[in-house]
């Protein structure tokens, strides 16, 4: 009946809840961010670093980055408590609901990315 439920492909319930709890306060409900303080998710940086998202979510980010042509250097906190499974759900929620990208990251690719985080 519900083959895909565990991965939230249909409704992104867990991804949405986790996003609201862990990310929304900074990146906003629509992912738009805040001026030159918090970068928008709809960005060249997001796409260019698609294979590093798992590492950014788990370990945070604290370096000067250029997003849609603007510099950002505030610190994003880490989320060591999020499981691989939860990270995949957050990414697929952002991708499909907020950013309307219509692409899907698998649990295995999140695990591969996390194994190779540079920090």
């Amino acid at each position: 009946m519900c083959y895909f439920c565990s991965c939230e492909t249909g409704t992104y319930v867990q991804g949405k809840t986790l996003y609201e709890f862990h990310c929304e306060s900074c990146h906003m409900a629509d992912g738009s961010g805040l001026a030159k303080l918090i970068p928008p998710l709809q960005s060249d940086y997001y796409d260019d670093n698609y294979d590093k998202l798992s590492c950014i979510i788990r370990n945070g980010l604290n370096e000067r980055i250029i997003v849609n042509g603007k510099p950002y250097e505030q610190e994003m906190p880490y989320n060591l408590g999020l499981s691989d499974f939860e990270i995949v759900n957050i990414i697929n929620y952002m991708d499909n609901v907020l950013l309307k990208k219509d692409r899907y990251k698998s649990l295995q690719s999140v695990r591969d990315e996390l194994a190779g985080c540079s920090y």
């Binding site: 306060s25 900074c26 906003m28 805040l34 001026a35 303080l37 610190e75 906190p77």
Partner: peptide, 15 residues
């Protein structure tokens, strides 16, 4: 400034 919880949301509304 270092507030990780509600502040950016409130600032967005102040903006």
């Amino acid at each position: 400034i270092s507030c990780p919880s509600i502040c950016p949301k409130v600032k967005k509304q102040m903006l």
